[in-house]
């Protein structure tokens, strides 16, 4: 096995990991701040892809789809939080889980009714088609662009949470919501925005995935499973955990694909099982 191939495989793994990071972040943020396990995450990822495609076909530009769809679906997420999730705060963790689980079915069926159950093409923007020579092999320009976007999103999220007043409130709210209320801060507004942010990230992942995979109503199912595996390995609710675990899972999948390709999907579940045995709280999680 030559080194060029292994280096190329490592790079493919990191690129795949970046996509996993993006899908896991939204799930992790919502759980970390609100304690809601969002089972509709995969469906919202899919709705995001359709919204991106719709906006792109209306405006004739991929870029408008990339910007508008996450905002639009993020707003839709806020409506979900306000009307559906909010009444369930303070009840068992199963209630919002069941609600979002049901919601995912509604969303998938809704998209089937509006757009049909066949796949729809989502062309790669012409400025990002083609491959680039990395020295050890060729890689699609679009996938490198996606890695760049994910990096940008991670940096912006970090700055937003660590360096702004809003971020301070969010972090404090996650730790002690009662104290926040006592201090006169309207925590429900913060939760509304955080839920919208998480959903917006899911839908950004959907738009970015569109040109790599065909867009169809079931495309979110596998994404939900992957996002859960990554957040569990990284530690539920830990942003750093999601990032490290996403890249780790990507590289592990890629290396497995080189030596035992038929195991490429199952290996991430094996990795999760091993991590749970050794560190039940996940790599960066805190024990409850």
């Amino acid at each position: 096995m030559d080194t060029e191939l292994i280096l190329m495989q490592l790079f493919s793994g990191v690129a795949l990991g970046a996509i996993l990071v993006l899908t896991a972040l939204g799930l992790s943020i919502i759980f970390g701040m609100l304690g809601v396990v969002n089972f509709a995450h995969g469906a919202l990822f899919m709705v995001g892809a359709y919204a991106g495609l719709w906006v792109a076909s209306l405006t004739g530009s991929f870029w408008w789809g990339l910007i508008v769809a996450p905002i639009m679906i993020g707003g839709f997420g806020m409506l979900i939080e306000y009307f559906l999730i909010r009444p369930l705060y303070g009840r068992s963790i199963d209630d919002p889980l069941l609600l979002t689980f049901g919601l995912s079915y509604v969303l998938v069926e809704g998209v089937r009714i509006v757009f049909g159950s066949d796949g729809i093409p989502f062309p790669t923007p012409s400025s990002l088609t083609g491959v680039v020579d990395l020295g050890v092999g060729f890689f699609p320009i679009y996938r490198i662009f996606v890695v760049g976007i994910v990096f940008l999103v991670v940096v912006l999220l970090w700055l937003g949470l660590e360096k702004t007043k809003f971020g301070l409130i969010v972090r404090a709210g996650a730790r002690d919501p009662t104290m926040m209320k006592v201090l006169g801060i309207d925590i429900s507004k913060v939760w509304l925005l955080v839920f919208g942010l998480g959903v917006g990230l899911a839908s950004l992942g959907g738009v970015l995935s569109g040109p790599m995979r065909s867009v169809n109503p079931e495309m979110g199912a596998l994404v939900l499973a992957e996002a859960f595996v990554v957040t569990v390995i990284g530690g539920l609710g830990s942003l750093v955990g999601s990032i490290v675990a996403g890249l780790l899972v990507g590289v592990v999948i890629s290396m497995t694909a080189l030596f035992a390709p038929e195991m490429a999907t199952i290996v991430m579940f094996a990795l999760m099982a091993v991590v749970l045995l050794i560190r039940p709280q996940g790599l960066f999680g805190k024990l409850a």
Binding site: L5, S12, G13, R143, L222, L258, P261, E262
Partner: peptide, 16 residues
């Protein structure tokens, strides 16, 4: 190369 049924991403099979 045998790939898992229903895989969504094939990028890791491409270099080989």
């Amino acid at each position: 190369i045998m790939h898992p049924f229903g895989a969504a991403d094939y990028s890791t099979f491409m270099p080989r």
